[in-house]
Simulated scan of single mutants.
Amino acid sequence: MKVRFLLDENLPPKLKLAVQRFNSDIDIIRVGEPEAPPLGTLDPELLNYLEISQRLLVTDNRNSMGGHLQDHWGKGGHIWGLVWLRPGGTIRTWSESLVLIWEITEVEEWLDKLDWIPY
Score class of each variant (00 low, 15 high):
I91K: 03
W73I: 13
G67Y: 13
R21K: 12
L47F: 04
V99F: 11
G40H: 09
L39F: 11
W73K: 11
M65D: 08
H72V: 03
L69P: 04
R62H: 14
E103T: 11
L100K: 11
I104C: 10
K113H: 13
K16P: 01
N23I: 05
R21T: 14
W110M: 09
L85V: 12
P34C: 06
I79Y: 10
L46P: 00
P13F: 10
D8I: 00
I52T: 15
G40Y: 12
G88D: 08
W102V: 00
G67Q: 11
L69M: 15
S64A: 11
Y49M: 06
I104F: 12
W73F: 15
D115A: 12
P37D: 01
V19K: 01
P34M: 07
K75D: 14
R92M: 08
E96S: 08
R62P: 02
E106G: 07
I52M: 14
G88R: 10
R4M: 05
Q70V: 13
L85S: 05
L42M: 08
P38S: 13
E109G: 07
R21H: 07
G66C: 10
I28R: 01
K75R: 15
K113F: 11
Q54W: 04
W110P: 02
G88L: 07
I79F: 11
D25T: 12
G74R: 11
N23L: 02
V83W: 02
N10H: 15
E51W: 04
Y49H: 10
I104K: 09
D71F: 13
G66P: 10
M65Q: 08
S53R: 12
E35L: 07
L85N: 04
E96G: 02
G88K: 14
L111T: 10
S64P: 04
L7P: 00
P13Y: 09
I79H: 13
I79W: 06
P37V: 00
V99R: 09
I52P: 08
T90W: 03
G81R: 03
D8L: 00
Y49A: 10
K75H: 15
V99S: 06
L98A: 01
V19G: 01
E51V: 06
L85R: 13
L42S: 12
G67E: 10
P87E: 13
P37R: 01
V99T: 09
W84Q: 14
G88I: 10
W73V: 13
L69A: 14
L85Q: 05
G77C: 08
L17E: 15
I29D: 05
L46E: 00
G32H: 07
E51T: 01
E33A: 05
I28G: 01
K2S: 14
L47K: 00
S53F: 07
E108S: 11
L114I: 11
G74W: 04
P118Y: 07
I101A: 02
P44Y: 04
L7R: 02
I26L: 04
Y119N: 07
E108G: 11
T41Q: 04
E45D: 09
L15H: 01
P44M: 06
S24I: 09
W102I: 03
N10V: 14
H68K: 09
L100T: 08
E108N: 13
G88E: 12
G77K: 05
P87V: 09
W80R: 02
E108M: 07
K14L: 11
V58P: 00
W80I: 01
Q54Y: 05
S24K: 15
L111G: 08
R55F: 00
F22E: 07
K75V: 07
